[in-house]
């Protein structure tokens, strides 16, 4: 099964199909695009480019969002 490292944890995707783009990954994880920031292998992906940013096997993805803080 193909896998991605997401927020420091390996995630396997069933059926041999990795999401093709950041947008597809967020959809697969049921994450609202509007509230999240993505980094792929250390590079920030602007929200407007989620749909056109490809994802490949073995990449490291960080998905972050705002939480309460001082």
């Amino acid at each position: 099964m193909p896998s991605l490292r997401i927020n420091g944890t390996d995630h396997a995707f069933p059926g041999d199909t990795l999401p093709a783009t950041v947008a597809e990954l967020l959809n697969a994880l049921e994450i609202d695009h509007a509230t999240v920031v993505a980094e792929v292998d250390g590079q920030i992906v602007e929200r407007t480019r989620f749909g056109e940013t490809p994802i490949r096997e073995g990449q490291s993805i960080e998905l972050v969002r705002f939480v309460g803080g001082g």
Binding site: I6, N7, G8, T9, H11, L29, E30, I31, D32, T35, V36, V37, E62, L63, V64, R65, F66, V67, G68, G69, G70
Partner: peptide, 18 residues
């Protein structure tokens, strides 16, 4: 107002304080 950035909890992804 100040806010912090943290990793999305993949198991509970849509807790959006914003």
């Amino acid at each position: 107002v100040t806010v912090a950035l943290r990793r999305v909890d993949i198991g509970n992804p849509n807790d959006d304080m914003l």
